[in-house]
Each structure stands twice: as structure tokens, then as C-alpha cells.
């Protein structure tokens, strides 16, 4: 496993796209969080916004960059045929997938932490000017505050789990375009369905099983009792998706010819 980790680390590190994708994850998280903050105003004490969730909005955009990075980490090898060199050098395919997952998760987590910290910092600078003031019930965002820390750390974990989910799907699908399609469908189809369906029972069910909606419950800091799923339970649902996708990809990797 140590050799597989070393090889996969060297592989990902020497790919030109990796740096750009990691930068995009951090920048998109901060930029869209800041933009969402700047576009929202809180006029009164009852404005009913979740300032923490608002500050971390960028995660919903940067997850697309995470998806692309994760998908290409494996389909880039299938597309060129280099996967054969990989499995010739490292015949233990599950170990290769595990090493890829570990390296990818590590890098994504670093970029995500940078993005999330930047988002909190941007929110501290922007939100008070948009009416998110202590008078309206919004103290300055601080990571020393339990729910804020949970939402911020959870958002970084969310992006990491998205990376693992996408790696698993891409390993099963093998083709770049198809994998990106499946992954984005999996992420964005549920929110669209939830909005299109009027029955509240079905809505709650879909939120609970949707990797994106359930996963993002980790960002909620207000009206927690009204949410369809709790913060950590929601992240648990996404974890289950990621584990299932990796298990499925790993199984197919063992069964299929390379």
C-alpha cells in the first residue's frame, strides 16, 4: 500500500491539471460565497437568513471542480490507455484505488479548507455591511462558535466526500464525459426534483437520500429542528454514497479486464 500511495501521489502531483483544479476549488468556494453574501441583505431582525450557510454557498459551485478533478484522476488513465501501465506496475487493483482515493481526498481536503477559511473571512468582511449585524441577531462569524465551526469543517469534509463519490463513479464508468455526466446528474438532479415535486413527504424523503441536499445539511445553523435531516446524519448519507460508489468501482475494477 505504501508503494501504491507513493506512485499515485507522484502521478497526481505531476499532472498539469491538478494544480489548476485545486486552485479552482479554493477560489470558487470563496468567490461564490462572497458574491452570495454581497447579493443578500438583511433589513430587519426577522430576515430569516442562515448567515453561515450563506457564507459557505460557494461549496455548491466548487463541488463541480472537485468532481472534474476526481473523475479525471481515473478516467484520464482509461482514456489514454495508461491504466494498463498502472495495473502492470501495481497488480493489486483495490490497493491502487485506495491509494488514489487517499491522495485525492488529502489534496481536496487541503483545497477545501483553504476555500472554507477564505469564505468565513470574506463573510466577516462583507456580511456586516449587508445588514447582518448583532442588532439584527447576527454576531460576527467566528470559528470559535460551535455551529459555525461544525458548518465550516463539515463543508470541507463535504467536498472531500464528493471527491470520493466521484472517484468511485468514474472508476465504474471509466469514460470521462460519461462519468462527469453521471456525477453531475447525481448531484444536481435531486435538488431539481425536490423543487419540482410539491408533495412535502416526498420532498423530505428526497432531501434525506440526495447526496448533495443531505450532505449540505452540515451547513445549517438555524431552525435545525425544521430540517428534514440533521447535520451529521446528512453528512453520513453522503458518506454512505461515497463508500457505495467506491465499493462498486473497486469491485468492477477487480472483475473487469483492464
Amino acid at each position: 500500500m505504501k508503494l501504491e500511495l507513493h506512485a499515485e501521489w507522484t502521478k497526481l502531483r505531476t499532472l498539469a491539471g491538478t494544480c489548476w483544479a485545486l486552485a479552482a476549488i479554493a477560489v470558487l468556494t470563496v468567490a461564490f460565497g462572497a458574491a452570495a453574501g454581497a447579493a443578500t441583505t438583511c433589513a430587519s431582525a426577522r430576515c430569516n437568513h442562515d448567515a453561515v450557510k450563506l457564507a459557505l454557498t460557494g461549496v455548491q459551485v466548487s463541488q463541480a471542480a472537485v468532481a472534474v478533478l476526481a473523475v479525471l484522476a481515473i478516467t484520464g488513465e482509461y482514456g489514454t490507455g495508461m491504466i494498463r501501465a498502472t495495473f502492470t506496475a501495481m497488480p493489486r487493483r483495490s490497493a491502487v484505488l485506495a491509494a488514489k482515493a487517499a491522495v485525492l481526498a488529502g489534496l481536496t481536503l487541503v483545497a477545501a479548507v483553504v476555500g472554507v477559511l477564505g469564505s468565513v473571512l470574506a463573510a466577516r468582511l462583507i456580511l456586516p455591511g449587508r445588514g447582518f449585524t448583532p442588532e439584527h441577531g447576527y454576531p460576527l462569524l467566528s470559528l470559535a462558535d460551535g455551529p459555525v465551526l461544525r458548518a465550516a469543517a463539515g463543508s470541507a469534509l463535504y467536498l472531500t466526500l464528493i471527491a470520493l463519490l466521484c472517484l468511485g463513479v468514474a472508476t465504474a464508468v471509466r469514460d470521462s464525459a460519461a462519468a462527469v455526466g453521471v456525477v453531475l446528474g447525481l448531484l444536481y438532479l435531486f435538488p431539481i426534483l425536490i423543487r419540482a415535486i410539491s408533495d412535502p413527504g416526498w420532498q423530505r424523503l428526497l432531501v434525506r437520500i440526495s447526496p448533495m441536499n443531505a450532505g449540505l445539511a452540515i451547513q445549517a445553523t438555524t431552525n435545525l429542528d425544521l430540517q428534514p435531516i440533521g447535520p451529521w446524519a446528512g453528512l453520513g448519507v453522503l458518506t454512505a454514497w461515497a463508500v457505495a460508489a467506491l465499493a462498486c468501482g473497486g469491485l468492477l475494477l477487480r472483475l473487469r479486464d483492464a
Binding site: 508503494l3 501504491e4 507513493h6 506512485a7 499515485e8 501521489w9 507522484t10 502521478k11 505531476t14 499532472l15 498539469a16 491539471g17 484520464g76 488513465e77 489514454t80 490507455g81 495508461m82 494498463r84 501501465a85 502492470t88 506496475a89 501495481m90
Partner: peptide
């Protein structure tokens, strides 16, 4: 083994390609 010499990721240098293979062994 040499199977398909064209099976490379084009953005990686030749040396880096050999380097990940070396690290795997």
C-alpha cells in the same frame, strides 16, 4: 513490458512518467 508506447498522459513529462513507475516499485 512494453504494450502500447502511446498509452501516456500527454501533460506529464517523460521523466515524471518513469518516476511514478519507479516509485511504485
Amino acid at each position: 513490458a512494453l504494450l502500447d508506447a502511446a498509452a501516456l498522459q500527454p501533460s506529464r513529462t517523460g521523466r515524471d512518467h518513469l518516476l511514478w513507475l519507479a516509485h511504485s516499485q
